[in-house]
Amino acid sequence: MKLFMRNERNFEKRVKLHLRHGAMMPMMMMLMIMMLMLLRIADASVAATNATCKHATNMWGDPNPNIFYVCSVADQMPLQLHCPQGRGYFNGHGHLGCLPYDQWPACRPTMELVAAQLAAGCNSSESNAKDQPWATLDPNQFYMCPGVNSAPLLLSCAPGKGFVQTVGCADWSLWRRQMQCEAYY
Rank of each mutant, 00 (worst) to 15 (best):
Q180M: 03
P133A: 02
V15P: 02
G61L: 07
E112C: 02
M5R: 15
R176K: 02
E112L: 13
Y101K: 01
Q165G: 00
L81H: 08
H95L: 08
L17Q: 07
V114H: 05
F163G: 00
N149V: 01
S72G: 07
C157F: 07
G97M: 04
R87H: 14
Q117N: 12
G121Y: 13
L3W: 11
C83H: 05
N10A: 04
S127Y: 06
D75Q: 09
W134R: 03
P152N: 03
L96F: 09
M32Q: 14
D102R: 02
M1L: 09
V164E: 03
L38K: 09
C53T: 08
K16R: 10
F163Q: 01
A74W: 15
D43G: 14
L38W: 07
S125Q: 09
M77F: 09
I67T: 05
W172G: 03
V164H: 04
K2D: 08
E126D: 08
R87M: 13
Y101W: 14
N10W: 05
L96G: 00
S72W: 02
R6V: 15
M59T: 13
P84K: 15
A135Q: 12
R108Y: 00
K54E: 10
T57Y: 06
F11T: 11
S150W: 03
L79F: 10
G86C: 10
D62V: 04
T136F: 00
L153D: 11
G61E: 01
M5H: 15
Q85N: 08
H18Q: 10
F68H: 11
Q141S: 12
Y184Q: 06
T49W: 02
C181K: 02
W134T: 02
H93I: 07
C107A: 06
I41G: 04
V167S: 13
W172N: 06
D138V: 07
F11K: 15
T52D: 12
A158F: 12
D43Y: 02
M27W: 11
Q80E: 11
A119F: 12
L3H: 10
D62W: 04
M111A: 15
K13W: 09
Q117R: 15
H95D: 06
G168Y: 04
